[in-house]
């Protein structure tokens, strides 16, 4: 292969990997946030991603709204569905064994999945976006929608970190994550914090669904597909570690793209599983366990 072609293939795969990694990051940080604050393994998180994608689809295809407003409405829908879900499926089980919450969120995911399927059918849909152009640089192509995804991932993750580290809300979240009882004694309304964290995580997943839908389409089962990878990212990063989730999510996206570009046929699908098995065997606390304190401490 010509050296220039080889270089541009490598650069293209890195770009592809960053885009895919951005999707993993947006979904995984919500999961990580919920586990970090509520200590809940949320199996319904992928369905919030689906809700976001379908709200964007309905807003653009049925209501004729511009794409950007569809993304905003998807975020609000995610916030609302997340808030209701926390009250109905998580709060009543506060203090119950972890397995009960685990089953409750799993049940919630099935309700949402089949609810969406019942209302909108099982077919995949793509979302019309206003970002239809692309950029070419040294043989590398980046579409406007991919750029939007990368930019929004940076903005949302950055905003989350700033809020967590620099604001009173973040202080409260970290206090509750670290010690619920002490936080409560200090006058923090713990239930409200739980509620907010869960809803914000759902909104992040919904935004991811709305941004990804124009690129990869959305169907009622999309959430289950992305959830497994998001779980892998969270486990490999270290449970509750937001910076870790960002680094592992991006790294996994890039590794998968490089495997598809340079590895044997089909090797891409094994990257995530090799990663999680290796982490569980050799570093069960996760690759970035120390950074968990950045969220919780």
């Amino acid at each position: 292969m010509h050296p220039l072609l080889a270089t541009s293939l490598f650069a293209q795969e890195i770009v592809n990997g960053v885009v895919q990694g951005g999707v993993y990051v947006l979904v995984a940080i919500g999961l990580s946030l919920v586990f970090g604050v509520l200590k809940v393994v949320n199996f319904a998180h992928g369905e919030f991603y689906v809700v976001g994608g379908f709200v964007a689809y309905l807003c653009t295809a049925s209501l004729g709204l511009p794409y950007w407003s569809a993304v905003v409405l998807a975020a609000l829908a995610g916030l609302a569905v997340g808030a209701v879900a926390e009250r109905l499926a998580v709060k009543p089980l506060r203090g119950a064994p972890e397995d009960a919450v685990f089953l409750s969120t799993f049940g919630l995911s099935l309700v949402l999945l089949y609810g969406v399927k019942l209302l909108l059918g099982g077919q995949p849909h793509t979302v019309a976006t206003s970002f239809t152009g692309d950029m070419h640089f040294a043989g590398v192509v980046l579409t406007d929608q991919q750029l939007v995804l990368i930019a929004l991932t940076i903005v949302l993750v950055g905003a989350l970190f700033v809020v967590l580290r620099r604001s009173y809300v973040g202080l409260v979240l970290r206090a509750v994550a670290q010690d619920r009882a002490t936080g409560s004694l200090m006058g923090i309304e713990v239930e409200r914090v739980y509620w907010a964290a869960f809803a914000v995580a759902a909104a992040l997943a919904a935004v991811a669904g709305a941004i990804v839908a124009p690129l990869y389409s959305v169907n009622p089962y999309s959430g289950q597909d992305i959830l497994i990878t998001a779980f892998i990212v969270v486990i490999a990063a270290g449970l509750g570690s937001l910076p870790g989730a960002v680094m592992v999510g991006l790294g996994l996206g890039i590794a998968e793209a490089l495997a598809a570009g340079y590895g044997p046929s089909g090797s891409r699908q094994y990257v995530a599983y090799v990663l999680v098995v290796a982490v569980l065997l050799f570093r069960p606390q996760g690759l970035f366990p120390g950074t968990a304190r950045a969220v919780r401490a």
Binding site: L5, Q12, N16, Y221, A257, A260, S265, G266, R268, Q269
Partner: peptide, 22 residues
């Protein structure tokens, strides 16, 4: 160039980049 993909795969950009370079 030939490659396989999973039933639930939605991002084919990495495979397509390789097909393009080939």
């Amino acid at each position: 160039y030939s490659a396989s993909f999973e039933a639930d795969q939605t991002d084919f950009s990495a495979e397509l980049a390789k097909a393009k370079s080939d």
